[in-house]
Amino acid sequence: MADPATLLPLLLLAPALVVVAGLAAAGGAVTSGDRATAPVVETLRLLTKQRRRTPADDPLLARIGLTVLPVAAVLALAVVPVGLPGTGAPVDLEVGVVWFNAMEVLAWFAVWTAGWGPNAVTALVGGYRTLPLGLAYELPHMLAIITPAIAAGSLDPARISAAQHGLWYAVWMPVAFLLYLVSTAAMAFWGPFAAPLGRDLAGGAGAEHAGLDRLLLHAGRWMLLVAAAAMAVPLFLGGGAPPPITGPDPFSGPAWSWFAIKLLVVLALLLGLRRVMPVLRMERFATLAWVVLIPLAVAQALVVTVVVLV
């Protein structure tokens, strides 16, 4: 357990996620017409600012929530096979998919407490918006991540990624892949699902947070988005393996390089999604999720199950 070779990836996990999240945020700044250096400038600005208190607030609870957000993102990434030697994941967990899901729902709690803490109306309404958002995206999301697990017969992301040589799960379960991409944006309350931090609420759950608190919220959100996008690679895109279309003699670079390329593609898809979609109203999304997306996800899981059983 205390072998330095296994501890090193764990120690590097958080800094690596921060760097990639920063790159993703730079990409996000460019696609929304800002400078690529905007995230760095904003980070430095927030670090020099004081935190803000409001009358009769609950700063302890809010800060617990705000701290949980980036921590949950790092813990979620810990079970993703990122192409390290061995099984590929910093932590080899047999039920990694369930762990990932559990860490990612901690974000609901984080945003809700962040909105509750300041005792201010816009923040509170933003925090409460997390609940319909979560209830809407979570069931399609669970069905979407369990479908590759059914096909591979394992809850271990490394085994799932190894099971799809020849045919990526994104190809043979496209509905699950699309639902996963949508729920990735939703779980990071980002892009079309940014209603909890909505502009119509002057920033929503983040409206009253300044300085380090605000940095934790926004950096944590990008970290969560990157961690969720990273999970798409082993679940749907064959993990660290080269694309099967290159035939029997592919350019087999190191696994981490293929992982990085695929992660960039997933992040680019998500940035594109934010460009083309407006922020959805939670009630509309909830209706869509429950009436359309859940039946779609169930149908996809059913098809995969029948194919696997037969």
């Binding site: 967990l93 039920v95 899901n101 559990a102 729902v105 609901w108 809700w112 997390t130 209830l135």
Partner: peptide, 21 residues
């Protein structure tokens, strides 16, 4: 009991949030 423990975290977090509803 990895699965059981993680499912408790998952379910209880969601459950608390539904309690908020």
């Amino acid at each position: 009991l990895a699965y059981l423990g993680i499912v408790v975290v998952l379910m209880m977090t969601i459950e608390m949030m539904i309690m908020v509803v």
